[in-house]
Design a protein around this nucleic acid. Structure first.
Length: 592
DNA sequence: GTGTCACCTG
DNA sequence: CAGGTGACAC
């Protein structure tokens, strides 16, 4: 889902709360000596006191050192020169802090898109912010002082001097820095070279050094300031770029994972090549990695097999109209085949806000009525439908929803969401106020049963994501997994039972086997998983059921049931056909 | 060793 | 639906 996905990557998180400290990320010129020689630990420079005092030269040195060390702290994994710098206690500590920051969100799976705020809420966050503020203040002070010092004397461009002991940085140190951008990669590079050459001259006269030091410092500081500005701009623009990149590139991935409450929302382009309907033969279990997708327009109007959409009106299917009647109800209620981009965008927002895009619960959004054909099929529900001895269709024309057509239909896009994505999405939802229960209650069981309509093989991570009010431990996790195991058991027993019944009834074509809402098999399943009938079973479940039934039919017909493990291929097929569960299931309350 | 699965049983 | 069991995968 990675979802990846809506999921703010560690990158974006890092840049969110390290926007300024990472200004020098790209280049890591941190000189070796800097960390060791600095008398001031990080963030302990008495700024105001120093600036008010007489020894402003020393203060400047300390300040510049602090700034440079701040730049040194920025991670630069690519720069080898960073390695020795990390040996300093200061840098080591910061490295540990970075490690904590990188690992913590991942463990917690936090998705909070908030930029700097969330960093402040974590361990080490306040410190980073504090250092950030300190750096800013230092920068402001430096700027003010430079302006103050430079204005009366004009731009300090003359020969500047320094001293190993008194200068902000010794010549050796600066040389050690090489062409470190923190001071020399700006347009002042030439001036800096002059500084270096001038430094030797100044050893001759201490007085001259004393008098010119201020100007040198101003020049140096100005260069430093410009460099800092440059780095700042670079870092900020880089952060913006990365965030924008995230936003612009990730949404499709997020949508691919989050926008599909049911399988097949978005058809991959390379898998949309339709093969002739009914042209292929059943090619074995593993050819059926796709679900039958009804050919529909984006608006949800079936473009193919139209007669089936209005079976009662069609003279072509006089036999068993009730069975055909609900074969096509228009687009699956919550399983649109395609989603316009603007809807996807809204879905993203919806997900971000913790609201599901659709609801399966009765009384949910009027999405049901909006589907064209669904409103037409004001036909008796499965309760009122007459009991049927079997579920298979007797019509001569095979239903379009057959395994032979499966091959030509797009692969199920969903399968299972990335676990991390699920986790992250679930944790992004505002369930902080939900009461976490230690054990599982009947409401959880009911919800799990309804979830079975979408997923037959949920992973433990998925369960954790969709039961935010459950304190998962080994016991509850295994119990819930056991639930689904029991669900599957009942499901497969029913499938086998009806498949054998169809065979005994003389059905030869598995394509005749379709689970409809008024079929007996569906009634049994619905009675088991949706006893109160307060949930509208998604069409995708009917499709999966039909496919399962057909697979059992084929296996038994081929006499494969003599093999003790004859069901395993079927299990494997079905296990790949899990749909994404609607976001509404992430609500802690049991659907009503 | 742990987790998950299907299967069986009550 | 839960408990138990054996098989399997990591």
């Amino acid at each position: 889902m990675d979802p990846n996905s809506i999921l703010l990557s560690p990158q974006s998180r890092t840049c969110s709360h390290l926007t300024e400290p990472c200004m020098a990320r790209e280049r890591s010129p941190c000189p070796q000596e800097l960390g060791r020689n600095s008398p001031f630990p990080w963030g302990q420079v008495p700024i105001d006191a120093v600036w008010l005092g007489d020894e402003h030269v020393q203060a400047k040195r300390a300040r510049v050192e602090t700034i440079v060390r701040g730049m040194c702290l920025s991670p630069s994994p690519l720069a080898p020169s960073d390695a020795p710098a990390r040996n300093s206690p200061c840098c080591l500590e910061k490295a540990r802090e970075r490690k904590r920051k990188q690992s913590l969100p991942r463990q917690q799976g936090s998705l909070k898109p908030g930029p700097a705020q969330d960093g402040g809420n974590r361990k080490g966050g306040p410190r980073v912010r504090e250092q950030l503020h300190l750096l800013r203040r230092q920068l402001r002070h430096l700027q003010a002082h430079i302006l103050q010092a430079a204005e009366p004397r004009g731009t300090a461009q003359g020969p500047d001097g320094t001293d190993k002991g008194k200068g902000p940085l010794s010549v050796k140190q600066r040389n050690g820095c090489g062409s470190g951008p923190w001071i020399m990669n700006s347009d002042h590079h030439q001036g800096s070279s002059k500084d270096l050459s001038g430094a030797e001259k100044h050893r001759v006269s201490e007085d001259k050094y004393q008098s010119e030091e201020a100007r040198f410092l101003s020049s140096r500081a100005q260069a430093l300031l410009k460099t800092l500005r440059k780095e700042l701009m670079g870092a900020v623009s880089q952060a913006v770029d990365s965030v924008l990149q995230k936003v612009l590139l990730d949404p499709p991935g997020c949508l691919a994972q989050l926008g599909q409450d049911c399988q097949g929302l978005e058809v991959p382009e390379d898998k949309t090549k339709p093969s002739p309907p009914g042209g292929g033969a059943y090619k074995g279990p593993f050819a059926l990695t796709a679900l039958p997708r009804r050919a529909q327009t984006q608006a949800g109007v079936p473009v193919g097999n139209l007669p089936l959409a209005k079976p009662l009106d069609s003279p072509r299917y006089p036999i068993s109209p009730p069975m055909i009647s609900k074969s096509y109800q228009g687009p699956p209620v919550n399983c649109p085949l395609t989603v316009p981009s603007h809807i996807q965008g809204n879905q993203i927002l919806s997900h971000l806000l913790g609201h599901g895009p659709s609801s399966h619960w009765n009384g949910g959004p009027p999405q049901d009525s909006s589907s064209p054909n669904h409103s037409e099929s004001a036909l008796p529900s499965w309760e009122t439908a007459k009991l049927r001895p079997a579920v298979w269709s007797q019509q001569q024309c095979p239903l379009p929803f057959t395994s032979t057509r499966l091959e030509s239909l797009p692969l199920l896009p969903s399968m299972k969401m990335e676990q991390g994505g699920l986790r992250a999405v679930s944790e992004a939802l505002p369930f902080s106020s939900v009461h976490i229960s230690e054990g599982l209650n009947p409401g959880h069981l009911k919800k799990a049963k309804l979830m079975f309509f979408f997923t037959r093989y949920p992973s433990s991570n998925l369960l954790k994501a969709y039961f935010p009010d459950v304190q998962f431990n080994r016991c509850t996790t295994s119990q819930m997994i056991k639930w689904f195991s029991n669900f599957r058991e009942f499901y497969y027993i029913q499938m086998e039972k009806y498949a054998r019944q169809a065979i005994s009834d003389g059905v030869t074509n598995p394509q005749m086997l379709v689970v409809l809402r008024d079929s007996e098999l569906f009634r049994a399943l619905n009675m088991h998983y949706n006893k109160g009938n307060d949930f509208e079973v998604p069409d995708c479940f009917l499709e999966i059921s039909s496919l399962t039934l057909q697979e059992f039919f084929r296996a038994v017909s081929a006499g494969k049931d003599s093999d003790p493990s004859w069901k395993k291929p079927i299990y494997k097929i079905i296990s790949k056909l899990d749909s994404n569960i609607p976001e509404t299931f992430k609500s802690s309350s049991c659907p009503q």
